[in-house]
């Protein structure tokens, strides 16, 4: 079953800006799907159309088999949205904000109260329930938006840059929460600038650029397209002038830091063997850049040169 089927979706704004140029995108039920793209690529427009916040110019959207044009309410009731910007009334109480959202989705007050308590507790906001939303910290406000999106227990949760501007601790906590939601069977669509986030959470990734999907595949296939990775090796002692790694492009960034480019066909073991034969010990090793980030940049640059 497809949670979301987007076909030939196009959007041209009144000022003439073409945001989407007929994109196709399918998200299977239960999937953790990442929608990546640079600023202005069309991510938020896509999400806006799916959630009825933006009017489409053409194309179709179906959510769990329900057509958005034929039955917008039928689509809306299946979706929970965590938008990028704080869009709740800052002067309302925390509990009131979540309860109202439950009410808008048709949960009677008693049930709404119970669901609100459940998700505010889950987000660690129950103690703050009587305070005004404006008194919350940035991280708490973001958790409030997640609680609000989940209160009606949607089948599809869309998170638009949910960890933008939050500290590492909260980002990690949000990741585990998103993972937990997905483990319970909820389909998750995530847009993010943090490619590390997409790499660790998403099973399927689409890359959108200038209103076009330039890649849409599962994460493993996507990462397999990466031809070369650069590793940074921290050496125990300064490297000798005679350092030789034939067949591997390499450079010393300082006396004890060595960067080595390893293509897909070559083995990293070979690098270690050659260093060892020259009595060079490696203390630690890391990727120079996030793998997905490299691929992302490559794909976006390729799309740029095509257009």
């Amino acid at each position: 079953m497809q949670a979301l089927e987007v076909s030939q979706l196009a959007k041209t704004y009144r000022n003439g800006v073409v945001a989407l140029q007929g994109i196709d995108m399918n998200v299977a039920a239960g999937e953790f799907f990442g929608l990546l793209g640079p600023n202005g690529a069309g991510k938020s427009t896509t999400i806006g159309i799916i959630t009825s916040l933006v009017n489409k110019s053409s194309g179709t959207v179906r959510c769990f088999g329900v057509d958005l044009d034929a039955d917008p309410a039928g689509v809306k009731r299946q979706i929970g949205l965590v938008p990028q910007e704080f869009n709740f009334n800052q002067f309302e109480q925390v509990q009131q904000i979540v309860m109202q959202q439950a009410g808008y989705y048709g949960l009677p007050r008693r049930e709404a109260r119970l669901q609100t308590e459940k998700y505010l507790r889950k987000m660690g906001l129950w103690e703050k329930r009587s305070g005004n939303a404006r008194q919350l910290s940035g991280g708490m406000k973001r958790r409030l938006m997640i609680a609000r999106a989940l209160v009606h227990e949607p089948r599809l949760v869309i998170l638009d840059e949910p960890t933008a501007g939050v500290d590492i601790e909260l980002r990690r906590a949000t990741w585990s929460l998103m993972q937990e939601i997905n483990d319970q069977g909820t389909t998750v669509i995530l847009t993010t600038h943090y490619l590390e986030e997409a790499e660790s959470l998403c099973r399927r990734i689409a890359i959108i650029d200038r209103g076009r999907i330039v890649e849409d595949t599962d994460k493993k296939t996507l990462l397999a397209k990466l031809h070369m990775e650069t590793f940074i090796l921290d050496l125990a002692k300064p490297a000798p002038d005679s350092l030789a790694l034939d067949g591997y492009a390499h450079r010393l960034t300082d006396a004890t830091t060595l960067e080595v480019d390893v293509t897909k066909e070559r083995s990293l073991n070979e690098v270690f063997a050659r260093l060892s034969s020259q009595n060079i010990s490696v203390l630690s090793m890391r990727n120079k850049a996030n793998r997905l980030e490299e691929l992302f940049v490559t794909l976006v640059e390729k799309n740029e040169s095509l257009t």
Binding site: R77, E85, N87, Y104
Partner: peptide, 16 residues
């Protein structure tokens, strides 16, 4: 005010 603060979106995304 709801429009300005964007919390009107809470209603627009709901199935009402």
């Amino acid at each position: 005010s709801s429009k300005f603060q964007k919390n009107v979106e809470e209603m627009l995304v709901a199935p009402m």
